[in-house]
Design a protein around this nucleic acid. Structure first.
Length: 245
DNA sequence: TCATTAAATTGTT
DNA sequence: AACAATTTAATGA
């Protein structure tokens, strides 16, 4: 396939390990599992490529198998607002899929990512047949709602340091992103550049923020990633405008 | 397995 | 935005 083949045309069936990486698949009965597995498609998104755009009709409920995506919208003035990053194990679009409406945000790959899609019809079929699946989707919706509410607060009143901290904390949400193993001390593979795109700051500023967080022993910065030492501190970190505390 | 080189990422200005 | 320094990944003997 050529370089610029649209994402949707580059899809294929999932391999067993890929199926295994999908958190809700384990909740299904054998017959449900089989139906979902035969419907799921996966394709690879290159960095910067759009996985879905605002306004497009929802045909798939989409999840990240591998890589990292960014969820954002543009307001009336064209200013971009980033909601959150979507790491492996994260699924999105359930709200709009439920109502069969159009996507409300843009989803863009920050790095080379493998993205799986479940057709809306199958999504609805699972809702009609599996209680466990319903519970999963409900938890997911509820948790994302909480995340969005928290974001409002972050976006208007907190310092860059705090924004970086909370964005990081959001990536460790155990309900939305179970595959990440949100255990403290685990390495999160994310570059400072990727984090910058995610938070909407310059890489320099992110670098500065990470240094501050490290100085407080909240995280440890490593090459190509970082470790969270205290998720609690990351979530509740409060910063002054200028000189530290 | 080691050494060399290219590429990616970070730290600074 | 540009640069140098550092780390990793890739290559081949």
């Amino acid at each position: 396939m050529s370089e610029d083949t649209p994402l949707l045309l580059r899809r294929r069936a999932l391999t067993p390990p890929e199926l295994d990486a999908i958190p809700w698949m384990h909740l299904l009965s054998p017959s449900e599992h089989e139906r979902a597995a035969s419907d799921l498609k996966i394709s690879e998104a290159r960095p910067g490529e759009y996985v879905c755009r605002v306004g497009r009709p929802v045909t798939y409920w989409i999840g990240v198998v591998d890589g990292l995506l960014k969820m954002s919208t543009s307001d009336a003035n064209g200013k971009t607002m980033t909601y959150t990053g979507v790491p492996p194990g994260g699924w999105f679009g359930e709200g709009t899929a439920l109502k069969r409406e159009a996507y409300r945000y843009n989803i863009q790959a920050l790095r080379k990512s493998r993205v799986a899609g479940l057709h809306v019809d199958t999504f609805h079929w699972l809702l009609d047949h599996s209680i466990a699946f319903n519970r999963f989707v409900m938890n997911h919706l509820n948790e994302r709602l909480g995340q969005f509410i928290a974001l409002r607060e972050i976006d208007r009143m907190t310092s860059p340091d705090a924004r970086v901290a909370r964005s990081l904390a959001a990536l460790f949400n155990p309900v939305l992103y179970p595959v990440l193993h949100p255990g403290e001390g685990e390495v999160l593979r994310i570059t400072q550049q990727e984090l910058a795109y995610l938070v909407g700051l310059s890489r320099q500023r992110v670098n500065e923020a990470l240094t501050t967080l490290q100085a407080r022993s909240i995280i440890r910065v490593e090459y190509g990633g970082l470790r969270v030492l205290s998720l609690e501190a990351l979530r509740s970190a409060v910063f002054e405008k200028k000189n530290g505390l």
